[in-house]
């Protein structure tokens, strides 16, 4: 098992953020975490990314305890795309993406440069490579960061040539924020292609359609606990979604679509809805 999270709890100050979370994910899976705002999705991802060392429970990556892994070993095993990155200094796009190779070589080799160019092309930012990062739009910035993370993950300038089974993990926290529909699809297809090459991909997503189309395994969080986990078909029921998000939805089938479509059913009246009141949103 590539990633094994056992009975994780985490408090920040006096707030309990995560409580008794367990998750197992093997190589070659695209594992999607969903949940309402504040359910603990990002925090769970940060624990797996090695950002919080004060958690209780155990996280093992490839059979080794996360807390015992040196930072450089972690960086060779897994790449992370975080939310809300700020970079104000005028580094060029190419410079930002080449930072992804730091853990392998502080001075770039020819092979490193090939991987960097490849990552730039895959995320369609190759033509922006000489632009300075702060002048990009939000969606372009996100694509550049994705390219940087890809440059850190890959071992060769090809998505499918190398077998990464049991060796590589990719963590994505809301990776498609600010991207247009083409690049949203592109990013998730990239994630599933990597998964097919043996990379374990764990992604936090908000979009039901993207999750339904690409998730190999779904984890739904509620109030810092695992509410349900399983396949898309098992998790995407109107009852589950109503319990987690407080919204009435219909789950539909469409002849042109191999995955269930989640459609909001109640356009108005949310402020009076008992489901929303039960969640104490208001």
């Amino acid at each position: 098992m590539m990633l094994c999270v056992k009975d994780i709890s985490l408090s920040l100050g006096k707030m309990k953020i995560l409580e008794g979370i367990s998750l197992e994910a093997g190589a070659g899976k695209l594992c999607v975490i969903m949940g309402a705002n504040g359910a603990g999705k990002s925090t769970l991802l940060k624990v797996i990314a090695g950002e919080y060392m004060q958690y209780q429970g155990s996280v093992t990556i490839g059979g080794k305890e996360l807390k015992a892994l040196p930072v450089a070993t972690q960086a060779r095993t897994r790449a992370v795309l975080s939310q809300q990155l700020t970079l104000n200094q005028p580094f060029t796009v190419a410079e930002v993406v080449s930072m992804g190779r730091y853990v392998y070589n502080t001075h770039l080799s020819a092979a490193d440069k090939e991987i960097i160019s490849y990552a730039l092309k895959v995320m369609q930012v190759y033509n922006l490579r000489d632009r300075t990062y702060p002048t990009l739009s939000g969606g372009q910035k996100q694509r550049v960061q994705m390219a940087r993370v890809l440059a850190q993950l890959l071992e060769a300038p090809d998505l499918e040539a190398t077998d990464y089974t049991g060796r590589k993990m990719l963590l994505l926290d809301e990776p498609v924020t600010g991207m247009d529909i083409l690049h949203q699809q592109l990013s998730l297809q990239l994630a599933s292609t990597l998964a097919a090459s043996g990379v374990l991909v764990v992604a936090v997503l908000h979009d039901f359609q993207l999750a339904a189309a690409y998730a190999g395994k779904l984890l739904m969080l509620k109030d810092g606990r695992v509410y349900a986990q399983g396949t898309v078909e098992e998790i995407f029921t109107s009852a589950h979604i109503k319990n987690c998000f407080g919204v009435d939805v219909a789950v539909l089938e469409h002849p042109h679509c191999h995955y269930p479509l989640v459609v909001t059913a109640a356009a108005g009246g949310l402020f009076q809805s008992p489901a929303v009141k039960a969640l104490k949103v208001l």
Partner: peptide, 21 residues
């Protein structure tokens, strides 16, 4: 210097990329 470049992305990202912050 290479680690300082990564620090420009933030301490978190520097750590994720293998810098002992």
């Amino acid at each position: 210097a290479p680690a300082l470049n990564l620090l420009a992305l933030g301490e978190r990202e520097a750590m994720h990329s293998g810098v002992r912050v």
